[in-house]
Design a protein around this nucleic acid. Structure first.
Length: 370
RNA sequence: GUGUGAUUGGUGAAGUGGUUAACACGCCGGAUUGUGGCUCCGGUAUGCAAGGGUUCGAUCCCCUUAUCGCACC
């Protein structure tokens, strides 16, 4: 069956929404944060550890799994869930973001996109049909339309062309999508141009997808612009479908997204910065490699209930990072993911209590004051 | 004891009689938003063992001392 979103409660003071998402692999509350597991693994974490941090949906990537090990192999293994031993829900990104990160503008045509494989430089060709076909074989609960995440900044004319292209691609993908157990999401583009965002949203909604994503943010624009991008399209999205802000997961951005009516987020930030020695705390991000933590025998965060905070000190984790033991990176990855997920738990609670606005102001005050 | 070769930052080292002593590692910071995992960007020796001399000018040439290595007695 398809996913089913139910709006449980709307916040009084903001557009924040409390919702419920039913999937073939369990029911989860929104707003939620989805950890990213590009290569069918959330880097450094086992599925058991993901359960421990109370993860819901996790992300995998079409482009990466297409190259290795190949969608046919995953299908042969019995699908992505079985292959990676994750029985929670999975969402696969379409490979659209790799248009942004791997291809040149000249390689993008209305038909599809030519990539150079990041592994061996081989030419690869991805089309909306191909992306959906791969995703059908991978078997995630939610699959994404193949879109163009345009460069920022780009001209109005280019963005207009890009939005048209993404709409056509969405339509083509929807036509070939043939797995009734997978929900297909459309993606709103349009950059910072208000009318293009509106048009993209309206036309995408007309195609009637199972959920809607806002793409093309966090590509180099400032925060104000990013929030405007959301504001400029979110009211065109139906209230009875889930809304996903792609690639966003900075704590402050999650709050601002929720405030504007976003339900789900994903981001590589918690795991990437963890591998580089950084941890989220209520009082801002800290760098565990800093000399000041050398003899700091306290936990990363007093408020945190994660495995790392329950058992280890900053001094020990710093030591692991300094000697390049990967256990340090693992502990920080666990902590950072738990930090964001716990944050969404509190956000939900605050919406339920009609105190989201207060929660957000309080969080920002602590997080930015230091 | 005699002869001989060395001595450059936290480490391994390059280098030249003349503006800011290369590079690497380490260390100290910073970045990181649909992941091309262990990356990227900065900073880091007011000084070349110590003292004296030659020179317009010495880390580089000379002398003495110290330390270390090698060879011989």
């Amino acid at each position: 069956m398809k996913i089913k979103y139910t709006l449980i409660k709307k916040d009084n003071n903001t557009k924040a929404r409390l919702g419920k998402l039913e999937t073939n692999h369990g029911t989860y509350d929104t707003p939620m944060f989805m950890p990213v597991g590009t290569n069918a693994t959330v880097k450094m974490l086992s599925p058991e550890e993901l359960k421990d941090v109370n993860a819901g949906i996790i992300l995998a990537n079409t482009y990466h799994l297409w190259l290795r090990p190949g969608e046919d192999l995953v299908a042969k293994a019995g699908g992505l869930h079985k292959f990676m031993n994750w029985n929670g829900p999975i969402l696969t990104d379409s490979g659209g973001f790799q248009v942004f990160s791997l291809a040149n503008p000249k390689d993008i045509s209305d038909d599809g996109v030519e990539f150079k494989s990041h592994i061996d430089g081989q030419k690869m060709y991805l089309t909306p049909e191909k992306s959906i076909e791969i995703q059908n074989k991978l078997g995630a609960d939610i699959i994404m339309s193949f879109d163009e995440c345009a460069y920022y900044p780009c001209t109005y004319d280019y963005m207009q062309e890009s939005v048209e292209r993404t709409l056509k691609w969405a339509k083509r993908g929807k036509e070939v999508h043939n797995n009734p157990n997978q929900s297909l999401f459309g993606i709103v583009q349009g950059g910072e141009f208000k009318d293009l965002r509106a048009k993209s949203a309206i036309e995408t909604v007309k195609m009637d997808f199972d959920g809607y994503a806002i793409g093309g943010t966090s590509v180099g624009e400032d925060k104000k612009t990013m929030y405007e991008m959301i504001d400029n399209c979110i009211d065109y999205l139906p209230t009875d479908k889930v809304r996903y802000l792609m690639g966003v997961g900075d704590p402050l951005d999650i709050l601002n997204g929720v405030k504007r009516g976003v339900d789900i987020f994903d981001c590589v930030q918690p795991t990437r910065i963890a591998r580089h020695g950084n941890a989220f705390t209520r009082y801002g991000k800290i760098n565990l490699k800093n000399a000041k933590y050398k003899e700091d025998f306290t936990k990363i965060s007093e408020e945190c209930d994660c495995y790392a905070c329950k058992n280890y000190t900053k001094a020990y984790i710093r030591h692991l990072l300094m000697v390049k033991e990967t256990f340090g990176q693992r502990l920080l990855s666990i902590h950072n993911i738990r930090f964001l997920i716990k944050m969404t738990e509190e956000i939900r609670q605050s919406i339920e209590n009609d105190s989201f606005d207060e929660y957000m102001q309080d969080f920002i005050k602590k997080y930015t004051n230091k």
